[in-house]
């Protein structure tokens, strides 16, 4: 019986992979156009506001949107979706990944190393860098998202130190350069009479968007973060704001199963894989 069950599981996995493979590959144009447009718009806000061509309150709202959507293309680049490692065009994948998070001022290298650890150890209390987001309720998740990057709760620096690999050491150096340069720019703006621009075009949108990003990318698809395993560490969920306004995270379970499926194809992949996910006993959140 055990052998029959094992063969059945292998067959199901083969079916799952065959379906998933249909959504992998090709050039993900939306994930390339998006970061260039987004970062260009955010950078344009500064001269427009300084020149008085755009009111600061409008710049704040646009910056808030820019910061909120800047992470996702980098997420695809972290997984080498745009061009895989070994491709002669892989440098472009890296370029997109770095450009995407210019508004967030976080190095791609830091995000990649810590995010891979999240995939390897999703929901592990000690090894998942996103575990500080664990909370049973949405209100609790919101509270965790607000303080996640505070040193008392931050797990990214600790993860880079723990790994001690060449990639993590390089990422740590990049993180330090980013932190010093960001605070230097903010201080230079603030002390030169542009404190409101620094606050409303960068610092405040960064803080607010990081709460949104952590809530929808870390808390919502993994809550309550008590289970580990391929089919139980991530869930589908129905957001009151819809899939797009929730950063496409309703179908994040697909990303954890097949990380090289581009973000914009995860809804279709979810629909195709749904019968298998039901058989696997996944939490599909009524989707």
């Amino acid at each position: 019986m055990a052998v029959v069950a094992q063969v059945s599981q292998q067959s199901l996995r083969a079916q799952e992979k065959a379906i998933a493979d249909r959504f992998i590959g090709g050039f993900p144009w939306p994930m390339v156009i998006w970061p260039f447009v987004n970062t260009t718009v955010w950078l344009s806000l500064w001269p427009l506001v300084f020149a008085g061509l755009l009111p600061l309150w409008a710049g704040f709202l646009i910056a808030l949107l820019n910061l909120s959507v800047s992470y996702l293309p980098s997420h695809d680049a972290q997984h080498n979706i745009i061009f895989p490692e070994g491709s002669r065009w892989h440098w472009f994948n890296e370029f997109v990944g770095w450009v995407s998070v210019i508004p967030m001022w976080i190095p791609l290298s830091v995000l990649r190393v810590t995010h891979y650890e999240h995939h390897r150890h999703a929901n592990h209390p000690d090894l998942d860098p996103d575990y500080p987001m664990a909370a049973p309720t949405a209100l609790g998740g919101l509270g965790k998202a607000i303080v996640k990057s505070q040193p008392r709760h931050d797990r990214y620096g600790e993860t880079l130190n723990r790994l001690g690999t060449p990639a993590s050491r390089k990422a740590m150096l990049h993180a330090m350069i980013a932190r010093v340069s960001q605070y230097t720019i903010l201080a230079a703006l603030a002390w030169s009479g542009h404190v409101w621009e620094a606050l409303l075009l960068w610092w405040l949108p960064l803080k607010i968007s990081s709460v949104y990003i952590n809530f929808y990318l870390s808390w919502a698809p993994h809550r309550p973060m008590t289970q580990q395993g391929r089919y139980s560490d991530t869930r589908a969920f129905r957001s009151i704001w819809g899939n797009i306004a929730s950063s496409g995270m309703q179908y994040h379970i697909i990303h954890h199963l097949y990380p090289t499926i581009p973000l914009y194809r995860t809804p279709a992949a979810f629909r195709a894989l749904r019968p298998i996910l039901v058989q696997r006993g996944c939490d599909l959140g009524g989707m």
Binding site: Y183, T184, A190, W191, V195, W196, A198, W203
Partner: peptide, 25 residues
């Protein structure tokens, strides 16, 4: 030295960014 400087990060942030922000408010 970098480690020590990072240890004082919040105070440097208080001087570099919070001080002019509080003054502006």
């Amino acid at each position: 030295l970098i480690g020590i400087a990072f240890g004082f990060g919040p105070i440097l942030f208080g001087i570099g960014f919070l001080a002019p922000m509080i003054a502006a408010i």
